[in-house]
C-alpha cells in the first residue's frame, strides 16, 4: 500500500488523499492555442520522478506537495 507523509498528520494511507496533477507544458511551446490544447488533453506521463499535489481529504483537508517515482511508487525527499 502506498503511504504519504502529511505535514500535519504524519504517515497516512493513500486512500485518505485525493490526487492532483501539476500540468506541465513543454517550454518550447509558444502558440497560446497549442498551449491550451496541450494543457487540456496532452500529458507528459513521465516514467520516473514527478512532483505532484495531494489533498488530504479524509484528514486535515490541506494540500501537500509530494515527489514520487512513478516506476516504483516510492516517495522521494
Amino acid at each position: 500500500m502506498l503511504f504519504l507523509t502529511c505535514l500535519h498528520c504524519g504517515l497516512r494511507s493513500v486512500e485518505e488523499f485525493r490526487y492532483a496533477e501539476i500540468p506541465t507544458v513543454p517550454e518550447t511551446m509558444t502558440d497560446p492555442q497549442a498551449i491550451d490544447l496541450d494543457r487540456g488533453f496532452f500529458r507528459t506521463n513521465r516514467e520516473g520522478e514527478v512532483t505532484e499535489r495531494w489533498f488530504h481529504e479524509f484528514g486535515c483537508r490541506r494540500w501537500i506537495t509530494v515527489r514520487r517515482d512513478t516506476r516504483s511508487d516510492s516517495i522521494l525527499k
Binding site: L2, V14, E15, E21, R71
Partner: peptide, 17 residues
C-alpha cells in the same frame, strides 16, 4: 488507482475494499 504510475505493485487497501 487514482495516481498515474508504472508500478506493478498490488495493495491490500484495494483488495479489502
Amino acid at each position: 488507482d487514482r495516481q498515474p504510475s508504472y508500478s506493478y505493485r498490488s495493495s491490500y487497501g484495494f483488495l479489502s475494499s
